[in-house]
């Protein structure tokens, strides 16, 4: 066990955070969080609502920059590069660290254009056939190809909620990111659509480093290998999912998992 109880696994971390503090104006939302995210695993952030898990997630690809008055202190690294360094290119960072949101948010464009949006922005396709290939493989990875291949020109907003969320995942995959952040991706979906997304996450594991924020402990137990428990802006405990759920070390974690609060 590492000196810091929060950090600690043996593989090379994809992203590391050290002593991260986040402020919204005067209010401190994240206090001294340090954590490593591995490339091979799915990492779940759990905790009661308002505990800061989503805020912290949005630090990893600097989406907090878009919030007026938000301020981030500390160090976050992607493959050893400081994400908040002045030389870091946000555009490139967000292409490497993709994100899927709580509510499916496809653009009001066709399915094809939704997926092609990222590759087009970043100039990843040299030709039309190249682009077709990228779109097809992204949709296939997201398990949406069979449903979407005959309606590529229809609006993305016309699909069902679960399909929209998989479209958003396909959109993120199309840029070929290294990390995918998922902010409660199933909270707006029904159980069947949720099951499909969970399968999808399982299939994507290993190819991308995946961090998922969830308020659903069962989901964390099902899809993740590592789990971090946040409470009141602090990282209380970070360990293998199995040990968190079977043998939590901190009382707060135990209370939360056994349903005393949350």
């Amino acid at each position: 066990m590492n000196q810091n109880p929060a950090i600690g696994h043996n593989t090379v971390p994809k992203m590391t955070a050290r002593d991260v503090n986040v402020f919204y104006g005067q209010k401190q939302a994240i206090k001294n969080v340090s954590i490593d995210v591995s490339a091979e695993h799915v990492t779940a952030f759990i905790g009661p609502s308002g505990c800061g898990k989503s805020t912290f997630l949005r630090c990893l690809n600097r989406m907090n920059d878009t919030v007026d008055g938000a301020r981030v202190e500390g160090r976050i690294e992607l493959d050893g590069q400081d994400v908040y360094a002045s030389g870091m290119d946000v555009v490139q960072l967000r292409a490497r660290v993709g994100m899927v949101f709580q509510k499916p948010n496809p653009f009001p464009k066709s399915i094809y254009e939704n997926v092609a949006y990222g590759p087009r922005l970043h100039g990843l396709a040299r030709s039309k056939t190249d682009m077709d290939e990228i779109v097809e493989s992204a949709l296939k990875r997201a398990g949406l190809w069979d449903e979407a291949k005959d309606r590529l020109n229809e609006s993305g907003t016309a699909m069902s909620g679960g399909q929209q969320q998989r479209l958003c995942i396909a959109r993120a995959i199309a840029v070929d990111p290294e990390v995918i952040l998922m902010d409660e991706p199933c909270s707006a979906l029904d159980p069947i659509a949720t099951a499909r997304i969970e399968e999808l996450i399982d299939e994507l594991r290993g190819r991308y480093a995946i961090v998922i924020v969830t308020h659903n402990m069962q989901q964390a137990a099902r899809v993740s290998q590592k789990t971090a428990f946040f409470h009141l802006g602090t990282l209380v405990e970070y360990d293998d999912t199995s040990s968190i759920f079977t043998n939590p070390k901190a009382t707060r974690t135990k209370d939360y998992i056994t349903g005393r609060y949350g």
Partner: peptide, 26 residues
Amino acid sequence: ATLAAPAGPIAERQPTDWATPAMRSR
């Protein structure tokens, strides 16, 4: 696993190299 099984083979892509001069100038 069969539910979300990809239909057919998926084309593999080279990981994006962000450091090429072309990408940098883009």
